[in-house]
Design a protein around this nucleic acid. Structure first.
Lengths: 133, 133
DNA sequence: ATGCCTGCAAATCCTTTGCATTCCT
DNA sequence: AGGAATGCAAAGGATTTGCAGGCAT
């Protein structure tokens, strides 16, 4: 079993992630945390995020925008990704159960988990006036 | 409208991708193509894959393993990812229609598309004897 | 005191880009 | 000829890692 020793930095990373619902990247988290710990290093943020996701305390996923995102919510759920502003929004968990029923079908092996990303435009962005270039 | 001038390299990239069902990365494709074009450069492969995916001739996705994968099949379909060997296997298109019905529900905006990744272990890997370290 | 954790910087991996040259049309 | 496309190498962004010193137990 892995031994984890307390560290203020890791504590603050967990807290920061817990208080956000925007699924930040390592760098976004780093920028927030620097307000409390001006000396924290990006490497420490990466190291702890990796550690915590390996322990299953947080979730990690990539939605295709080039960097990894992190989530304090580890229960299975889906995400909506706005192509315009990049927002990542949680979808209700009830969808997961319905989807699981669908794939009890023809999987080429044992399925342990699955993720869904929906891509579109969030309602906020839809309301903005579009400038045609 | 974008003008595309013929090039042997791009032709070979398309052909190579068409003949594979393993959803290669840019680098994997590069290694294959080098057998026919020993002088092709990795940059050219990346440039053409980017171009072709922007034109919608091929599909591009990331499944969380750190690099982008490419697919000659552009019709919507889902993927099964083996956690053990990394294989990426196509799932039947029929699932897509069923899933679309599920999310006509509570999306926080306009949904244009979606992707699903199933993670597990493919039947081949399941059959292999596991060595306990 | 021991060993995990940190900050820093260098290293690595993946992808894009600038430039001079070559290849299509 | 003129404009794309290429090869090469350098640059860029994201993430990991090596190391010496610091902190928790």
């Amino acid at each position: 079993m892995k031994t984890l020793k307390y560290s203020r930095q890791r504590e603050s990373i967990k807290n920061c992630l817990m208080n956000r619902t925007d699924h930040p990247t390592a760098d976004a988290l780093y920028l927030s945390i620097r307000e409390e710990f001006p000396n924290i290093s990006l490497g420490t943020v990466y190291r702890n995020l990796k550690l915590l996701s390996e322990l299953g305390e947080i979730a990690r996923f990539s939605c295709g925008d080039g960097s990894e995102h992190f989530d304090y919510v580890t229960e299975p759920h889906y995400h909506f990704v706005c192509k315009t502003c990049g927002a990542i929004i949680d979808l209700p968990q009830s969808l997961v159960h319905k989807t699981e029923e669908l794939m009890t079908g023809p999987a080429p092996g044992r399925v342990d988990s699955h993720t869904i990303f929906f891509y579109g435009e969030c309602s906020e962005c839809q309301q903005k006036i579009k400038i045609i270039c």
